[in-house]
């Protein structure tokens, strides 16, 4: 008999700044590579998604209106907190994916770097994507990017952490509130990432993390009228089509990427402003210059 019984962490959703269980009361088994159950995870329902979107919508305005510098600092803080939890993340990834620890550590480190990269973008993308337009008349005319609003993220199964971070960070950096469904196969990293966000001054509701089944939730993601854009990667064709069709109802912007395993590790691939651009609206302002 062991001297002390371990305390096992309960993995929950991260919604509106809190860690609720699924309102449905459902949970899913998480197994390791040997098939042994190592944890249970909340199985998010349609109602959980709606709660998350409601929280995101409430947070979107304030988050989008923060200074870009402030958003950058908070993303940087997320990077700091993730760095501090590197070991825990690497162990979790190892136990569920079966990859060796070195590969898992690399994934965590790259996730930190990705957050730092987008922390840097927060006060710069407007300078790269926006412009002043030399219209043929006595007008001042300039185009500035504004956040789209509420962005839903559908993360790939692998890489479980890096995929999620890479899809969430650009949307968040541009001032959008995010509702993300993490990896279905390896969901623990998603729940853990909530702990990073909760301790990084991310305002409640600006980032919401769900775990559950893509197939079940995809339709609700697509049709939810208060989601303005979707960012996904490596989704099955059928699912992507379902998202796009549903999205047409309220003219959601849908970006579904194909990213190779190795490409996730590449800054050139995943840290460009073109990962931000789909989640901003270009606003053009005209003003006469005559006295």
């Amino acid at each position: 008999m062991p001297g002390r019984l371990d305390i096992v962490k309960t993995y929950k959703l991260y919604v509106n700044g809190a860690f609720p269980r699924s309102e449905s009361g459902r949970s899913l088994k998480v197994t390791n590579t040997d098939g042994a159950v190592i944890a249970h995870i909340s199985h998010a329902s349609r109602k959980d998604l709606r709660d998350a979107v409601a929280g995101a919508r409430k947070a979107a305005c304030g988050w989008g209106r923060r200074t870009a510098y402030n958003r950058g600092q908070i993303l940087y803080r997320m990077g700091e907190m993730l760095e501090g939890k590197s070991d825990e993340f690497a162990q979790v990834l190892k136990s569920t994916t079966g990859e060796n620890l070195r590969v898992c550590r690399k994934e965590v480190a790259t996730s930190v770097d990705r957050l730092i990269a987008f922390a840097g973008w927060a006060d710069k993308y407007a300078q790269v994507l926006g412009c002043n337009n030399p219209v043929a008349g006595p007008y001042y005319n300039f185009t500035v990017p504004e956040p789209t609003g509420v962005v839903a993220v559908m993360a790939p199964d692998e890489p479980a952490l890096l995929g999620l971070v890479s899809l969430v960070a650009p949307a968040l950096c541009a001032g959008n509130a995010v509702v993300a469904l993490g990896s279905e196969e390896h969901p623990i990293a998603t729940s853990l990432f909530g702990e990073v966000c909760a301790t990084s001054d991310v305002p409640a509701g600006a980032l919401n993390l769900l775990t559950g089944k893509r197939e079940e939730l995809a339709g609700w993601f697509a049709e939810h009228r208060d989601i303005d854009a979707i960012h996904g990667a490596n989704l099955e064709d059928e699912l992507a089509t379902k998202l796009r069709c549903g999205a047409s109802e309220n003219v959601k912007r849908v970006t579904v990427r194909e990213v190779d395993d190795d490409a996730w590790l590449e800054p050139a691939e995943c840290e460009s402003p073109w990962w931000i651009e789909p989640f901003v609206e270009m606003k053009t302002i005209w003003h006469p210059t005559g006295a």
């Binding site: 950058g72 600092q73 940087y76 990269a117 922390a119 840097g120 006060d123 710069k124 790269v128 840290e271």
Partner: peptide, 23 residues
């Protein structure tokens, strides 16, 4: 602090600051 923070972020993004330049 802001100047270091801001410019820190440019270090790995310089090719986006100058159109037509490769990484």
């Amino acid at each position: 602090a802001q100047h270091f923070f801001y410019n820190a972020g440019w270090a790995d993004k310089l090719h986006y600051a100058f159109p037509g330049r490769a990484a």
